[in-house]
């Protein structure tokens, strides 16, 4: 029996360690342990470790809740910010870029060897920007969603292209703001979204060479990116998600880019 493989009954053994078996299941495991001293030693050690961990950490859970973590106090602190944001948040969602006409090849199966340098560069820039700002708690965005009109006007001006924010609420992501970044030879814009568990998604746009419209998928650690270039601008959507989760979002964004009518 290899110790690296999960032997039959391993799930039951783990449940036994966690004291989650009763009656016949428990008796069956105990009979198994009685037959194998080696297994018994292992399981006893695992139970002992579990108990040690619990007892060492118990004091922490017995501490009174500090004032700054009381919900009422956090709510009071939030209230000012909320009043300022109210109403504006509702207007937070729109589209993104106008004037995109060329078609897109949703060709994410395309082998990476065929990827052109500009798309790679866009994806890499987007991933780097994602990693830098998505972990920010204090200042995830430069301009918050409360000033969305100002944000989009400002980013549009610096990009040299009209920029609006796609509505990703069907996917559970809400716009929280954006920022301006250095990108390539000019400026790049990053719009940031967040879902209800705090996962963040970014949309990254900057001027790019090439007219290519091929759709590129890149996975860097657990950050996934779909990137494409269209009419002189590169676009990338990045999130901690699987390709399957991200693809419909990328498609929705692309549809948002397509001129209506």
């Amino acid at each position: 029996m290899s110790s690296d493989n999960v032997a039959p009954g391993e799930d039951e053994l783990q449940a036994y360690v966690d004291e989650r078996l009763d009656g016949p299941q428990r008796a069956a495991v105990e009979a198994q342990l009685a037959r194998s001293p080696e297994l018994r030693d292992r399981i006893q050690a695992e139970r002992r470790h579990r108990a040690s961990l619990r007892s060492q950490l118990q004091d922490k859970a017995d501490e009174p809740i500090p004032a700054r973590l009381r919900i009422a106090n956090i709510q009071t602190a939030r209230r000012t910010r909320l009043t300022r944001r109210a109403g504006l948040a509702a207007a937070a969602l729109a589209i993104f870029v106008v004037g995109v006409g060329a078609g897109w090849l949703a060709n994410e199966q395309r082998p990476s060897i065929a990827m052109s340098a500009p798309t790679t560069s866009i994806a890499q820039g987007a991933t780097a920007a994602y990693r830098t700002f998505v972990v920010e708690v204090a200042h995830p965005v430069e301009v918050g969603v409360a000033q969305e009109a100002h944000l989009l006007q400002w980013l549009s001006k610096r990009l040299g292209r009209k920029l609006e924010a796609p509505d990703l609420t069907p996917f559970g992501y809400r716009l929280i703001g954006g920022r301006l970044l250095p990108g390539g030879s000019g400026a790049a814009a990053q719009l940031m979204y967040e879902d209800s568990t705090g996962r963040r998604l970014t949309l990254y746009v900057r001027a790019a060479d090439g007219t290519e419209t091929a759709f590129r998928f890149q996975k860097d650690g657990d950050a996934a990116t779909f990137a494409w270039i269209d009419q002189g601008f590169g676009f990338a959507v990045t999130a901690m998600a699987s390709r399957e989760e991200l693809l419909p979002i990328a498609e929705a964004i692309y549809k948002g880019l397509t001129p209506k009518g």
Partner: peptide, 19 residues
């Protein structure tokens, strides 16, 4: 109201965060 629902869970959240 979130207060009465969330607060009983704060000690466990603090323990997890500390660990």
């Amino acid at each position: 109201d979130p207060g009465p629902l969330i607060e009983p869970l704060i000690p466990a959240l603090r323990r997890y965060a500390y660990a």
